[in-house]
Amino acid sequence: MNGRRAALLLLLAVLVALPHALPRFYTYVAAIVLLTGLLATSLNLAIGYGGIYQFHHAVFYGIGAYGTALMLTRTALPAPLGFVVGPLAAALLSLAMGVVCVRLSKLYFGMLQISLGSLVWVTVYRWYSFTGGDDGIHGIPLPDALGSTGGAYYFTLAVTVLCLAAMRRIAASPFGKTLEGIRDNPVRSAAVGVDVRAHQLVTLVIAGFFGGVAGTLFVVVDTSVFPDMMFWTFSLEVLIMCLLGGMYTFFGPFAGAAAIVLLRVFASHYTSYWSLVLGVILTLVIIFLPDGILGYAVRRHRAGEARSA
């Protein structure tokens, strides 16, 4: 346990030192890794812990980003308010969609969510006068402190760490444990008195909120938003991040997100066929390691402990 804490502290120290050691572009990439990791972790709260088929999580990421972007570009209200509005808008949308969707389960849930999410996407995509349509919004003005790549990075790092800590806390709470129970066996959960739908709804709102935070961070890092952020292929990509790292672990999705973002950045240096590489890796993972890479490692580790004990 102590070794783990030390490792986390070391990682944190490296992350803090990063902008001093790396060129600007890589600081930007690191910030993208952080916020994408946050996004994947928020999705995993629903899909890995709750077993909810959240097929269109990118919508909340997108609404978080657009909410903030629109507040910053279209109103004269103070910027921090915009940073709050984005995630809250995402949480609210998540609540509204959730109320409709939780009546259904599994694939039907996912399908209905895809439909609703696509409606949101296509509206943003076509509403030129308000959202900028398929061009999105670029050059979003930020407070001076966040204007530099370094400033944006540290802000992202701080918020991500905070959010991860909060989600870790939630995962380790009675609520989180109950959620795992619902994932494993919703019928049994109801039979011991758990209101399954209410718990799922709360989970969706939490996941949507943190997804929205990730979207807001994207605005800070990239100063732009565009509708592709909430196109459903991106939702699938985030799902894949969870799967790759391991849905039944807390940090797996973060690791998966880092792997995919970095793979895209670096593999695209060497080959224009990086999605082929990703597809092959994924196929192998799904067939041979359905618990994900980190999940597999954890299982091996546990099995090893059990044997030595």
Partner: peptide
Amino acid sequence: MLLLLTFSFALI
């Protein structure tokens, strides 16, 4: 899992 598998096929 099947959904994600077919997605990786789509990538490939």
